[in-house]
Design a protein around this nucleic acid. Structure first.
Length: 583
RNA sequence: GGGGUCGUAGUUAAGCCUGGUUAUAACGCCGGCCUGUCACGCCGGAGGCCGCGAGUUCAAUUCUCGUCGACCCCGCCA
C-alpha cells in the first residue's frame, strides 16, 4: 500500500517518488497552497498540495480534515532554505503530492490530540484516540522494548518461558481473589491467579531449574496510583540457588531494563542493601526513598527520666520518641502549625516541633525539658541555628510508620527530593511473620512458603524475631518487586504451618498438591517477581500506572472505554445457577 | 469502610466565597479570504440540563443536604 514511512524521510530521499499513508495531523490551508502534517507510527512529514503540481489534488485537498486517513503519492523535495523546520526530523524536506486517496474520514474528535491537558476520564473513554498521540505511543513502544529486553536477558541466562493457568484454585492468604463461576461444576468457582506462585514452584519440582513468565496477575483490592486490579509481573523461579544467586541474576535484569529505558547506566552497582530493621528504624518504611536524607533519630534514651508528660507516658508503656531534623528551611509559626495538622491527619496523636535559634531551643514544650535533655538533643541531632526538629512519641511500630510517612510529606513539601537521582535499594532480612490483628494470629509476611533464615524446629521464642530469606527491590521509594528462597522440605513446611497456626487438615485442603510435591524430591529453590508495569512507570518517570497500561481501570475498577464491569444476561446467570442477591 | 480534591460549550479553564444583567475566555468546529506555513494568519458565525436530585429563598451555576462520576490518600494490597 505504501513504500515509505512519514517519519523516516530525509534529505537523502530528495527526488524520490514515495507513496505514504497515515493520518492528517495538522492542516494549514493557505488557499493557494495547502500544507498537511501527515503522521504515521514513525512520525510526521509535511506534504504540500500545490496547484502547480496537481490542480485536481489541490482542489480535493480542501476537503481534508483532521485525522482523515489518506494515502498520498508525491515527490520528495528539499524545502526552500528559509522554510526548513529544524524542530522535526523531517524538517529539511517536504513531499509534493501529485495524487491522493481518502481512505477514511474522521468525525470531529472529542479532544484535540495536541492538547496535553485533557482530563484523564476523557482520555480513557477514547483511549484509542489518546494513544494516537506520539508521546503516548512512545510509552507503549518503550513497553514493547521492555518485553523484548526481559525475554532476551532471561533466555540468555538459561531460563525457560512458561504459561500457567488463569483459571485456577482460590487459595487463602494474601489478596482477595477474583472469582469465576464454573458452569460444568455448579456452585464451584475458579479464581484468577494473584500470582503464579505455586505453579512456578511446581515447575522447579519438575526439574526445569530456571523458569520465567511475563504473567498477568489479578488482585481484587482497592486501586491506587501504582496499583491496578490486573497487572503484569515478571515472574521468576530458580533451583539450586541461594539468596545471592537470585539477587545477582535479577539485578542484572533490572540493570538491562534500566539501560534500555533510560539510556544510561544505573548510578550505583551493585545495588546497595539495607536490612528491614534498619529501613524501619531510619526511614520508618520498608521501602525507603533515599533520594533525600532526612534520617529518623530515636531520642528515647535521652528522655528516660523526663518530666514531659507525653514522653514520660509513652516511654513507660514501652513506646519510643522519634525525631528528624529539617535543615536550611525557614518555617513560620503557621508552617509549624500546618505541620502539626498534617501529622494528625496521618494518624499521629500529635507532633512536637522545636526550633533552634541563636538564643537556644524554642518550642511550646521547651520549658518542660531539663538542661541536660536540651544539650543532649542539641549534640545528638547536631542542631544549628535555623534547624527545626520534629518529634513524635507513640507505640513502637506505629511511631516508626508515622514518622516515615511524615518524613515523606516533609520531603515532598520542602522539595528535598532530588529528582535527578535514581536510588535502587535491596531491602533484606524481613521478618518471617507478622501479627494479624484481624485474624488474631501470626501470618506470613511474604507468603507461607518463604524459608526462614534459621531452623524453625523447636522454636518457641518471639515469633517476630524470626527473619526470612526474603528480599525486596526498592526504587526511589517504590517497591519494584520481591521474592524469597522457598521452603523445599516437608518437615520445614510443617513447622511453618505450626507457627502460622494452620492445622494439618486445613493445610492439606488448601495446598495439598504442593505439599505432596515437596515430598517427592523438591529441589532447593527460590525466586522473585517484579511489577512490570511499575518498572515501566518508574523508569519512564510517569506519575501513574494507568499511563503504562493500554486500557486501564479507573479507581472504582471500571473501564470507561468498554463499560466493564456490567450486568450479564439472566440466561447466563441461569446457566451458572447464580442468583444476584443485590442490585 | 474512612478522609480529601474536583465536576460550567467538543476540550481546557474563569465566574460561585459575597445568590439577581444576555454565563466569560482560549483552543476546536462551521462559513469566507489567503502561494511558504509548520500552534499559519485575518474576518464572520454556531455551540450550555452550569453532572443529577432534593432543600433554603421572591430568585440557585452560586448556599445546604443527598447522589453519581473522576482523581489522591488511609484501611486493604506485596
Amino acid at each position: 500500500m505504501r513504500d515509505a514511512y512519514c517519519g523516516m524521510i530525509r534529505k537523502e530521499d530528495t527526488g524520490r517518488t514515495v507513496t505514504l499513508a497515515g493520518w492528517v495531523f495538522r492542516r494549514r490551508d493557505h488557499g493557494g497552497l495547502i500544507f498537511v502534517d501527515l503522521r504515521d507510527v514513525t512520525g510526521i512529514v509535511q506534504v504540500v498540495f500545490s496547484p502547480e503540481i496537481s490542480r485536481q489534488a489541490h482542489e480535493r485537498a480542501g476537503d481534508i480534515r483532521s485525522e482523515y486517513v489518506i494515502k498520498a503519492v508525491g515527490k520528495v523535495e528539499r524545502r526552500p532554505s528559509e522554510t526548513e523546520n529544524l524542530n522535526i526530523p523531517t524538517g529539511e524536506i517536504e513531499v509534493y503530492i501529485s495524487d491522493f486517496e481518502i481512505l477514511n474520514t474522521c468525525k470531529v474528535l472529542p479532544f484535540q490530540l495536541e492538547d496535553e491537558e485533557i482530563g484523564e476520564a476523557v482520555r480513557l473513554k477514547y483511549r484509542y484516540l489518546d494513544m494516537r498521540r506520539p508521546e503516548v505511543q512512545k510509552v507503549f513502544i518503550e513497553r514493547s522494548k521492555a518485553y523484548r529486553v526481559t525475554r532476551d536477558y532471561l533466555l540468555s541466562k538459561g531460563f525457560y518461558e512458561f504459561e500457567t493457568p488463569l483459571l485456577t484454585k482460590s487459595t487463602p492468604e494474601g489478596a482477595r481473589d477474583f472469582v469465576v463461576p464454573s458452569r460444568l461444576n455448579t456452585g464451584m468457582f475458579y479464581a484468577l491467579p494473584q500470582s503464579p506462585q505455586l505453579f512456578k514452584q511446581l515447575l522447579m519440582m519438575s526439574g526445569f531449574e530456571r523458569y520465567f513468565q511475563i504473567a498477568r496477575c489479578f488482585r481484587d483490592e482497592d486501586l491506587r496510583a501504582d496499583r491496578q486490579p490486573e497487572f503484569t509481573q515478571i515472574d521468576i523461579e530458580m533451583s539450586f540457588v541461594d539468596r545471592e544467586d537470585v539477587m545477582s541474576v535479577n539485578e542484572g535484569l533490572i540493570i538491562a531494563l534500566y539501560e534500555a529505558l533510560k539510556g544510561k547506566k544505573p548510578p550505583e552497582v551493585p545495588f546497595p542493601r539495607m536490612s528491614y530493621a534498619e529501613a524501619m528504624e531510619k526511614y520508618g518504611s520498608d521501602k525507603p526513598d533515599l533520594r533525600f536524607d532526612l534520617p529518623i533519630v530515636d531520642l528515647t534514651a535521652i528522655f528516660l527520666k523526663t518530666e514531659l508528660g507525653v514522653f514520660k507516658k509513652t516511654i513507660e508503656t514501652g513506646g519510643a520518641v522519634k525525631s528528624f531534623v529539617l535543615k536550611g528551611k525557614t518555617l513560620s509559626r503557621k508552617d509549624l502549625d500546618t505541620a502539626v495538622d498534617t501529622a494528625k491527619d496521618l494518624g499521629a496523636g500529635g507532633l512536637i516541633w522545636i526550633r533552634k535559634d541563636a538564643e537556644g531551643l524554642q518550642s511550646p514544650i521547651v520549658k518542660f525539658l531539663s538542661d541536660e535533655e536540651r544539650s543532649q538533643m542539641t549534640s545528638i541531632l547536631g542542631l544549628e541555628p535555623g534547624d527545626v526538629v520534629f518529634i513524635m512519641a507513640d507505640k513502637r511500630p506505629k511511631v516508626s510508620d508515622l514518622m516515615g510517612r511524615f518524613r515523606l510529606h516533609i520531603g515532598e513539601k520542602y522539595d528535598l527530593i532530588d529528582r535527578s537521582l535514581d536510588k535502587f535499594l535491596w531491602v533484606i532480612d524481613f521478618p518471617l511473620l507478622e501479627y494479624s490483628e484481624e485474624e488474631k494470629r501470626y501470618v506470613a509476611r511474604h507468603h507461607p512458603f518463604t524459608s526462614p533464615k534459621e531452623k524453625l524446629a523447636g522454636f518457641e521464642g518471639d515469633h517476630e524475631s524470626i527473619l526470612a530469606n526474603a528480599y525486596d527491590l526498592v526504587f526511589n521509594g517504590v517497591e519494584l518487586g520481591g521474592g524469597s528462597i522457598r521452603i523445599h522440605r516437608m518437615e520445614d513446611q510443617s513447622e511453618m504451618f505450626r507457627l502460622l497456626n494452620i492445622g494439618e487438615e486445613e493445610a492439606s485442603d488448601k495446598f495439598g498438591f504442593l505439599l505432596e510435591a515437596l515430598e517427592m524430591g523438591a529441589p532447593p529453590h527460590g525466586g522473585i517477581a517484579f511489577g512490570f508495569d511499575r518498572i515501566i512507570m518508574m523508569f519512564l518517570g510517569l506519575p501513574s500506572i494507568r499511563d503504562v497500561i493500554p486500557f486501564p481501570k479507573t479507581q472504582k475498577g471500571s473501564c470507561l472505554l468498554t463499560g466493564a464491569p456490567s450486568k450479564v444476561a439472566q440466561r447466563q446467570l441461569n446457566e451458572l445457577k447464580i442468583k444476584a442477591i443485590a442490585d
